[in-house]
Simulated scan of single mutants.
Amino acid sequence: MLSERDHIFCEKVASGLMAYQAYIEAGFCCTSNESAQAAASRKMKEPGIKEEIRKIRERLCDENCLTLKEKRLKLAEIARGKALFSGDEFLFEVPPSHAERMKAIDLDNKMTGDYAPEKQDVSIQGLFFEDLFDYGEGRETVSGGSELLEGKAE
């Protein structure tokens, strides 16, 4: 069972405050910031505290965060030019500009992973830098060069 101070601590941590600051603001006694950091660190390891912070964060996200579907639907509205923008800087509602529509498409592509890089094999086997050039006799090369890569070194 968590105390009232524990609940305050959890609320403050879940809302983004540093644990030691939340510890102090929750009314726990400490002599310095260092002691508050140590005590807050111990408190953060308690199973009941961890669970309460998780629940609060989940509740805050449910109340305030857009779901992935909501985000993608809003981007689709913007990309199609159907979303209207208004506010203090506008006297009336205006459709998104071409640049805003293109940015919405770009963001949707990033969200769905359409820009994920393709994996390509770029390994070089058996060659060392000096092997790429023919220096001829009498030129020095790095000792152990290609022999190291080809397993010929002693």
Rank of each mutant, 00 (worst) to 15 (best):
D114T: 05
K74P: 01
T112G: 01
M1E: 05
E63S: 11
G87W: 14
A26K: 07
T31L: 09
V142H: 04
G16F: 09
A14Q: 03
E70T: 00
E34N: 08
S86V: 13
G87S: 11
E46N: 13
M1P: 04
A83H: 14
V142Q: 06
C10V: 00
E11V: 00
I49C: 03
R80K: 15
D134N: 11
M111Q: 13
R42I: 13
E118F: 11
A83D: 10
T31P: 00
E89M: 11
E70A: 14
F9M: 05
F129E: 08
Q21S: 08
G16N: 07
K82M: 12
E11W: 10
G81R: 07
S41V: 00
R54V: 06
E70F: 02
A99I: 10
F129D: 04
T67A: 15
I53H: 01
L17P: 00
Q120P: 00
E140H: 08
D121A: 13
M18L: 07
D121V: 10
R139W: 08
T31Y: 09
G136K: 11
I105W: 12
L17V: 12
L107Y: 12
L17G: 00
R57D: 04
S41D: 07
S3F: 03
N64A: 12
E4G: 03
G126S: 09
L75R: 13
S123P: 01
M44Y: 06
R54P: 00
G81K: 07
E46P: 01
K43F: 03
S97R: 11
S86P: 01
G144H: 05
R5A: 07
K110V: 13
L2T: 01
F9C: 02
P117T: 06
A79R: 13
R59W: 14
S143N: 05
